[in-house]
Design a binder for these strands. Structure first.
Lengths: 192, 192
DNA sequence: CCCGTATGCGACAATTATGTCTCATCCGGG
DNA sequence: CCCGGATGAGACATAATTGTCGCATACGGG
C-alpha cells in the first residue's frame, strides 16, 4: 500500500495550501492516489476536510504541550512564561505547513466538534497571554485575545513571505518573535 | 435601477468576505439582485472576481496616495516617513472591508494584469520600508519586504479580531500600529 | 402618459464535481 | 507459489454551477 490515511491527510493539506479550491480529483491527482482510493478513506469531501481541520488543531494543541504552556501558566513566573511563549511560537512556525490550514480555512467554524476544540485552544492562548501580562512579560494595555490573533496573523505573514521568497526560512522564527515582542520601529528612537 | 456596477462590486466583496465560496447565485441573492443581472454586469464569474481584485488594489493604491507615501520617500526625512507610515496603516484599516478581499483571495496571483498592479504596490511598500529604515524610523535588521508582509498579516488579525469581538473597532488602529512598531512585550523589561 | 431601459423570473444546455460501483491488477504475507 | 486485501481505472447517476436566452414587467425620464 502506498499511503495510509494519515499520509493522505498530510499530503492533502499540503496540496490544498497551494490550491485551496482544488476538487477531489485534483487533490487525489496531486497526492498521487486515485480518486476512488481517496473516497475509500474519506466518505465525502466534508469528511476529508473535517479530518484536515482536526489535524491542524492537533498540531496546535501539540505546540501548547511541547511548549509547556499549561505549566507555565500555573507557575506564573515571568521566566517560565516568556520561555513558553517563545517555544510556543517557534513550534507553530515549525509546524506551520500543517497548521497553516487552520489559518485560512473557514471550515473549522462550521463543524461543531472542531469549533469546540478550536475554542478550547483559543481560550488557552488567552490564558497564556493574560498570565504573561500579569507577570510583566507582555504589555498590559492590549486585550489578551489580541496577542493570539496577532501571532496568528504574523504566521500568515511568515507563510506568504516564505512563499514569495521575501525572507529566508531560517530567519522566520526570529522575525516573527522580534516583531511580535519588540515591533519594527528602530530601538533608539522615541517611546514617550 | 437598484444598484449600479460599482455598488454591486462593493456588495459582492462584502458578501464574499463572509462566505468566500459563495456561488454566483448565492452572491446575487446576498446582494439582492437576480442572477441574470449579475451576469449582465459581469460576463463571467472570473470577470467579477477580476473587478473585485482591481477594486481592492485600487483601495490599496489610494491608501498610498492619501498617505503621501511617494512624497515621503522622496523627502526622506524621518518625520515625513513616520507620518506617512502611520497614515498609510490607518487608511488600510479604515478601508479594510474592501481591501480585505486582496488579503485572502489567491485570484490576484492568477490574473496577469492584477499581478503587475499588485507587484507595483508591493514594490512601493518595500521602497517605503527601506526609506524608513535608512531614516532610522524602522529597524534595519529585517528585510524591507517583511515590513509590508507583517502589516498585511496584522490586518488579517484585525479583521478576525473584529469579527470575533475580541477587540473594539476604535482600538483597531492603535493596536495594529503599536504592535507593528513597538511589539507586545512589556516596555520596561529587557532589550539586550 | 408613453416608451425605452433595466430588471426579475424561469427555462435551457453544457460543464463540472461528487459519490458509488464494478472489474482488473498489483503486491506482500503465509 | 498462492491468495486476500488494497489499489487504479473507468463507467455511471446525480447534483450543482455556469452562462445564455426569451419574455414579462417595473421604473423613470421626457
Amino acid at each position: 500500500m502506498a499511503l495510509n490515511r494519515d499520509q493522505i491527510i498530510t499530503a492533502a493539506i499540503r496540496h490544498l495550501n497551494a490550491d485551496p479550491t482544488a476538487s477531489m480529483a485534483e487533490i487525489a491527482d496531486g497526492i498521487g492516489v486515485s480518486r476512488a482510493t481517496l473516497h475509500r478513506h474519506f466518505s465525502s469531501r466534508e469528511a476529508l476536510f473535517a479530518d484536515m481541520g482536526r489535524r491542524a488543531l492537533d498540531v496546535w494543541a501539540r505546540a501548547h504541550r511541547v511548549a509547556g504552556v499549561e505549566e507555565a501558566i500555573a507557575d506564573g513566573s515571568a521566566e517560565r512564561l516568556e520561555a513558553a511563549l517563545r517555544r510556543y511560537v517557534s513550534e507553530l512556525i515549525t509546524q506551520s505547513e500543517e497548521f497553516g490550514f487552520a489559518l485560512t480555512d473557514s471550515l473549522i467554524a462550521v463543524l461543531p466538534e472542531l469549533q469546540a476544540y478550536s475554542r478550547e485552544l483559543e481560550d488557552r492562548d488567552e490564558a497564556l497571554a493574560a498570565a504573561a501580562q500579569r507577570a510583566g512579560v507582555l504589555r498590559p494595555d492590549v486585550p489578551p485575545r489580541w496577542v493570539g490573533n496577532a501571532v496568528y496573523g504574523l504566521l500568515i505573514s511568515v507563510r506568504d513571505s516564505l512563499r514569495n521568497g521575501d525572507i529566508a526560512a531560517r530567519d522566520a522564527e526570529r522575525l516573527l518573535l522580534e516583531t511580535v515582542l519588540h515591533g519594527l520601529a528602530a530601538p533608539a528612537k522615541e517611546r514617550p
